[in-house]
Design a protein around this nucleic acid. Structure first.
Length: 679
DNA sequence: CTAGGGTTAG
């Protein structure tokens, strides 16, 4: 009886699903002495304990075994690896190494290398490698593919390729390692090439390689190839698991096809937190903040707590629509549960800034302990869009002296901050040092900031010379910056020639056509005005409607132009008419040039009054107490007439009014705007 | 006969 138990130890231990039964068998094995006599008994027992996720018991078996076999060690190493403890894997491996016996085998090295890869610990990995080499495992398929993975995870694709190319034979797993490695190294073209080579090698694909391929398509933004990957998965009748389907959702989302992404998501039979987060981030990244928030609620209704990624996307959705109340509650949720790490910290910082609370943004920035350059750049950019160029500069100086140092994005943020604040001297100075001191080659975006800065300040010749001095071909951003400078400063000759260049570049932005049209109109070049208007007409059908959002008492209210559907519409109009009368007494004159329709002056004036930003401001004033700050978010540029009007309104009602448009923030107070009227 | 390859974010 006992003998037969020992003989069939493995099948029995494999099937034990009950801790108590296992403990009884364990006791029996000790009592009969078969634990020490049967060669692989400790290994099987350790495996049995680890299947029940009882790592301490598994450990104690190894500890109490007098001369454990390598299989016993491997069982525990595999158990530790499976429960996600790479540090413990490595320390057990080192223990084994220090004891000197038993000798490690291929599995030992494979599991240990996996742990190194998970930790991105290249130097430990190379120690394991030389140990494996010395014991003759340098051509082992498993050891080699683990090594390929190690180098890939550490971002060294050359190292990975070197091991890969030297392998005696390659299988699906090692090919997949290369494909995925290239994707992670942001070399999607190489990833696809590796997949093709694999197919030419006669290796059949499975779902896991296809995940890599789908991600490569997402990274490339190649919708057609993405669809063909999807089609191939279906044609080959591959088992679609959560991971594969989540990748497809993400791929379609990244290619801007949210309908397709949503459809695949809805049809998924099994969803996890990651699938939900992928969907939510898809909506956010496509500018569909409302859908993102809707899905966040649905996710919780389905019993999933949002993870870090979902919270990042939620914060970003709040930023888009100025939903401070919800953004704050995400912040609170985090503070109660976890340490504020860098990525979510950046998203929350950005949320406070974009919701108009620059001081909260800075307070959050100061609380994040491990700051990376994305966070620094985002904080500098926040100062910039709020028109706080000097604060941007002093933060930049702090960053410059930190270990990180500025990068190309830092300089865009800084130069754009200067241009929003009119800090011309500072702009010239730091733009000059950018290449000389920091070795950062100026790109189109940097030139666009500089041209904008100079042109706004009226230094049009200097701006023009800068454009002409560019080594790279100036793009539309640079020309538009120069053109709007010409328009503001009535440099009509230069303006007309730049307008032509802008038109030749076929802009896809209606705002640019209005600018061009206005330049031609100012130069009395009516033929050209007619021509541009004709192009604009084609756009009108697919023009983005202007809307404004305002948060009142924690609820978000949206307004479209001439939005009569709003329950308080009558009261809003009444308010605006009253304000209009007072504004006129103070010297306000309607600037009807901001209406791009051919209408009677009076009709134009009424249209200006029904701009969405005005409705939102009036609604805010009607529904908040005296002294409350009003924050309005507008999706397009704020109209110049509304800008003027808001200055007057801020004075009449004695309120601080903050308007965020597609470019920057305008802080209105006591009849003055922080942007100095250069919007 | 065990081990190696996979999903979401600022």
């Amino acid at each position: 009886m006992l003998h037969s138990t020992m003989y069939h130890l493995k099948p029995i231990l494999t099937s034990v699903g009950n801790p108590l039964t296992l403990a009884r068998i364990h006791a029996l094995l000790i009592l009969t002495g078969s634990l020490s006599r049967t060669p692989h008994a400790p290994a099987h027992l350790i495996a049995a304990y680890s299947r029940l996720e009882d790592i301490p018991a598994a450990r104690s078996v190894l500890r109490t075994t007098s001369r454990p076999s390598i299989l016993a060690y491997n069982s525990l190493l595999i158990a530790l690896s499976r429960c996600g403890s790479p540090h413990q894997v490595l320390s057990l491996y080192r223990h084994l190494l220090s004891v000197g016996r038993p000798l490690p085998d291929s599995s030992t090295f494979t599991v240990s290398l996996k742990a190194c890869a998970q930790l991105s610990d290249l130097s430990s990995g190379e120690e394991v490698r030389s140990h494996a080499d010395s014991l003759g495992y340098s051509r082992d398929l498993f050891v080699c593919s683990s090594l390929v993975n190690l180098y890939a995870k550490c971002g060294d694709m050359e190292g990975a390729a070197e091991v890969f190319d030297g392998m005696p034979k390659r299988d699906l797993v090692s090919w997949t390692t290369m494909v995925t490695g290239f994707v992670n190294a942001r070399q999607p073209v190489e990833a696809i090439r590796a997949y093709r080579r694999m197919r030419l090698d006669g290796v059949e694909e499975d779902g896991i390689v296809m995940v890599g391929l789908a991600r490569a398509c997402a990274e490339l933004g190649d919708t057609r190839m993405g669809r063909s990957v999807h089609g191939r998965l279906i044609r080959l009748g591959m088992r679609m698991d959560v991971v594969v389907e989540t990748c497809l959702v993400d791929m379609y989302a990244k290619n801007g096809e949210m309908e397709a992404a949503g459809m695949i998501f809805d049809r998924m039979r099994c969803k996890n937190v990651v699938s939900w987060s992928a969907l939510i981030s898809g909506y956010t990244q496509n500018g569909l903040a409302g859908d993102a928030l809707q899905k966040l609620i649905e996710m919780q209704d389905h019993g999933f707590q949002p993870d870090l990624v979902a919270l990042v996307s939620t914060s970003s959705a709040c930023s888009q629509i100025g939903f401070l109340k919800l953004g704050r509650s995400v912040h609170g949720f985090i503070m109660r549960r976890m340490e504020l790490e860098c990525i979510l910290g950046t998203a929350l910082m950005d949320m406070y800034s974009k919701c108009g609370s620059l001081s909260s943004a800075r307070a959050l920035f100061d609380r994040i302990s491990s700051r990376d350059s994305v966070l620094w750049n985002a904080m500098i950019a926040s100062y910039g869009v709020h028109g706080r160029g000097r604060d941007a500069l002093s933060l930049f100086l702090e960053m410059k002296d930190s270990e990180l140092g500025p990068d190309d994005v830092t300089f865009s943020s800084l130069l754009s901050a200067f241009s929003h604040s009119g800090l011309v001297k500072e702009g010239r100075y730091w733009f000059g040092l950018m290449k000389k001191e920091f070795g950062i080659e100026p790109e189109e975006k940097h030139y666009a900031c500089m041209v904008d800065l100079l042109a706004r300040a009226g230094h049009l010749e200097e701006a023009h010379r800068l454009v002409q001095s560019m080594v790279i071909e100036p793009g539309i951003g640079v020309w538009v910056a120069l053109l709007s400078g010409c328009h503001n400063h009535k440099k009509l000759d230069l303006g007309e020639s730049i307008a032509k260049k802008v038109l030749d570049l076929n802009p896809d932005d209606l705002g640019i056509y209005s600018l061009v049209s206005n330049v031609y109109a100012a130069a009395r070049n009516w033929d050209k005005v007619v021509e541009v208007r004709r192009v604009m007409k084609k756009f009108r059908t697919r023009k983005v409607p202007g809307y404004s959002l305002v948060e009142v008492n924690g609820k978000l209210h949206g307004f479209l132009m001439e939005d009569k559907s709003h329950p308080q519409y009558e009261k809003i109009v009444e308010m605006l008419e009253r304000l209009d009368r007072e504004m006129r007494k103070l010297g306000y004159v309607a600037r009807t040039e901001f209406v791009f329709h051919d209408l009677e002056e009076e009709v134009k004036e009424r249209m200006l009054c029904s701009h969405s930003e005005r409705l939102a401001i009036a609604f805010g004033l009607l529904n908040t107490g005296p002294g409350t700050r009003i924050v309005v978010i507008k999706n397009l540029r704020v109209c110049g007439d509304c800008h003027d009007a808001t200055k007057f309104i801020s004075m009449i009602v004695n309120r601080e009014i903050v308007v965020r448009d597609s470019k920057r923030f305008h802080h209105f107070r006591d009849g003055v705007c922080s942007c100095g009227d250069y919007w």
